[in-house]
Amino acid sequence: MKIVKKYPDGVFSWIDLTTTDIAAAQAFYAGLFGWEVDEQPVGDSGVNYTNFRLNGYTVAGGGQMMPDMLAAGVPSNWMPYVNTDDIEATAARATAAGGVVFMPPMAVMDAGSMAFLQDPSGAAFGLWQPGNHIGAQVVNQPNALVWNELQTRDTEAAGAFYKQVFGWGQRTNDGYTMWDQDGRVQCGGLPLDPAWGDAVPSNWLTYFMVEDVDATAARLGELGGTAVHGPVDIEGMGRMMVAQDPQGATFAVIRFNGPVDEPPGEVEEVG
């Protein structure tokens, strides 16, 4: 297993789940991906936070949705975070580029600092400046984060925004956009289908790597989840499925036909 020790600036480094039922979500993802559940109190706030782990190493986080969000009807969701070494400066660039900072940078004890943003097309994402918590230690390996995909109503505006904020390079082929950081492709994007109407907002979709999409689809159903799209083959790429957990959070799973990029940044091999 390869463990990330430090992420480069401007790449996705963390994902976490905000859910209407954290206990049910813990059971679901433990069953689907074999994740271990490590729930810890957040200081003396009375709130707990879950670190999901593989072989003791972090893969994702999760927490119970706050009562005001529940009352407002906010759906369960996965949130991706981009690593930054200066969260205040990054948030300022996002505002200058036409984005919205809807939760300003705040310290999370000694773990690091976080902020929530929205790009000009309406897609939400987070920023993470690491302290003791570097982000996901396991990525680009089975049952862990491998890709994030922007589904947007304005690819051009989104591309300009992410270039200004993070310096991402961009190339588009057959309607699919890929963004790179310092030459390393790390996420993609595509236009939302107009046939979906306004019901689906611009969003970032998180992909988890699996070894067998069909077996994952079978477990998904047994655990109370729903296949939204697929399993389906993607020519020249692999096989994938878009799914929802029992609380309604959307994510995707994928098996690639060929090798997967190494985890980014400083990496150590263990085990």
Rank of each mutant, 00 (worst) to 15 (best):
T152F: 11
M237K: 08
R219C: 04
F12N: 05
A107W: 02
G221D: 13
T155F: 10
G126I: 08
D110E: 15
D180I: 04
P41M: 06
Y81A: 04
M65D: 12
G221W: 00
A215K: 08
A107V: 09
N48T: 15
D44R: 08
L192W: 14
M103E: 11
D85E: 06
G271P: 03
N143D: 11
A160M: 09
G221Q: 13
P263T: 02
G99R: 12
G175N: 10
M237H: 07
G258W: 01
S76M: 02
M237R: 11
V210N: 05
V74Q: 13
A30M: 06
L192F: 14
A160Q: 13
L145V: 10
Q137C: 04
Y176F: 12
A160N: 12
F12D: 00
G183Y: 10
V228Q: 12
Q129H: 07
E39K: 09
A115C: 02
S76K: 02
V42F: 10
P8C: 06
D212R: 05
G122T: 05
A123M: 10
M240N: 03
Y176W: 06
G197I: 08
Q40W: 08
D85R: 08
Y7S: 02
Q181N: 10
G230E: 05
G135K: 03
A217M: 10
R219K: 15
L205A: 11
V74P: 00
W179D: 10
G248M: 07
H133G: 01
E211S: 10
V4E: 00
G167S: 08
F208W: 05
K6S: 13
Y207D: 04
A160T: 13
S121P: 10
D261S: 13
V82P: 03
